[in-house]
Amino acid sequence: MAILQSPAGKKTAWTLVDIFVIVYALFPVLWILSLSLKSSETLADKSFFPTDISFEHYETIFSADVSLFIRPLINSIGISVIATLIAVVFGTMAAYAIARLDFPGKRALVGVSLLIAMFPQISLISPLFEMERALGLFDTWPGLILPFVTFALPLAIYTLSAFFREIPWELEKAAKMDGATPGQAFRKVIAPLAAPGVFTTAILVFIFCWNDFLFAISLTSTENARTVPAALAFFTGASQFETPTGSLSAAAVIITIPIIVFVLFFQRRIVAGLTSGAVKG
């Protein structure tokens, strides 16, 4: 931007900006991490960093009754993974049609998925609550997977069709000219080109499902299907009378780990996925 400044001054300025952004982004994360590492005695000392590091809260949540944390963690992983797989498969099919084929109703489909992306989810809680109770889906895995897939689909369709539109499809024809069977052309040429987009979409969809709170808290009532974000709202300490702050923080840190891993390893892809899907539509 500012062309006239000295290179060294610019570097320092940008470094300061970087530091500011890093502090901004990490502040709450570090605080919850710090709380989870404080021992019960120092939990209320109000210091930002723990004075002594203790893993007692982590031991608590893993040694307590499974319904406290372990079962919700399994639910979270299972439900999010299954919902992601379904949403990505369905999304890939629809996005391929949108990017590659000509058919009436294409714009309607894009419009509908846009509408659903902005849909107030709370509006569905009453009817879904009632319908799932009638169908026996209330408080089950499928009962959560269904709304997760629904609201993940627009995201999947948008991101994937943006990626698919960038794929040089002529390569497929070229491969066939060179004697490849359609199956080979797909496996050797198209699949490797499409894989990064599909993978990126899967990450975004997984983050979305992992994050959900409203459906998880409204459509479950026991540890049968309750995911971790919903379980956190009902957290208790090792005993009913102990404050759950420490163990709650430990649980919060554990479900943040996958997010941090994704962000660290796939930063570029996530940025590409979010920007291409949202703006080029």
């Binding site: 982004a25 990490l26 709170f213 974000p229 709202a233 919060a252 943040t256 997010i259 994704f262 940025v271």
Partner: peptide, 11 residues
């Protein structure tokens, strides 16, 4: 910057 985006809102 992606950390706030990705982190579970409840956390």
């Amino acid at each position: 910057s992606l950390i706030p985006y990705g982190i579970v809102t409840v956390v």
